[in-house]
């Protein structure tokens, strides 16, 4: 193999870094997309035997949006491994309070599939609760994964002028009491 061919091979199999903003995103839908990037399935050269996955940095894990009633219905199971009561079941909102990146981690852990590659793939996932990423990680990032869901706008993001000019559908009567 000539040095030119070798350089081409390196370029083809170069690992690149992606960033994903998890703000207002469903972690279970996002994890499927993220797993695809971790495994390299977004590449035309993908082959299950070739190690062609990328790194993914996920930011704003604290601001994920679980669908429907899942914050208080989805349960995460953990077992310490010891007999006689090593098992715990934690609700999603509880787990999120304890560790804001854990739900995303568990979702991706499930999405990458139960193969021997899982540990290596999970090592290339970097989760952050907010947008603060250390500079030595961020300098690798050359690509961003588009979000899956539309971010809703909250009232506090509208300027005062916009709120004032918004068409009023109805008005409370003068004697209306808001409790």
């Amino acid at each position: 193999m000539s040095s030119m061919q070798r350089a081409k091979q390196w370029a083809t199999f170069a690992r690149i870094w992606h960033i994903y903003d998890a703000k207002w995103q469903n972690p279970f839908d996002s994890s499927k997309t993220i797993a695809k990037y971790l495994k390299g399935q977004h590449k035309p050269i993908y082959h299950p035997l070739s190690d062609c996955g990328d790194h993914v940095v996920v930011i704003n894990c604290r601001d994920i949006a679980l669908p429907g009633p899942e914050w208080y219905q989805r349960v995460f199971f953990h077992h310490t491994g010891y007999p006689k009561g090593g098992a715990t079941w934690t609700l999603a909102w509880e787990l999120h309070e304890k560790n804001p990146t854990k739900i995303m981690e568990r979702a991706v852990h499930r999405a990458v599939g139960g193969t021997l590659l899982r540990k290596g793939l999970m090592a290339r996932l970097h989760l952050f609760p907010d947008e603060h990423v250390s500079e030595d990680l961020l300098r690798h990032v050359t690509s961003q994964i588009p979000q899956l869901r539309v971010q809703p706008r909250r009232l506090d993001s509208y300027s005062e002028e916009e709120v004032r000019d918004f068409p009023k559908v109805f008005d409370y009567p003068a004697d209306h009491v808001i409790r």
Partner: peptide, 10 residues
């Protein structure tokens, strides 16, 4: 990166 606006869902 991260870009604020460019990669939002349409």
């Amino acid at each position: 990166f991260p870009s604020e606006e460019g990669y939002r869902a349409p």
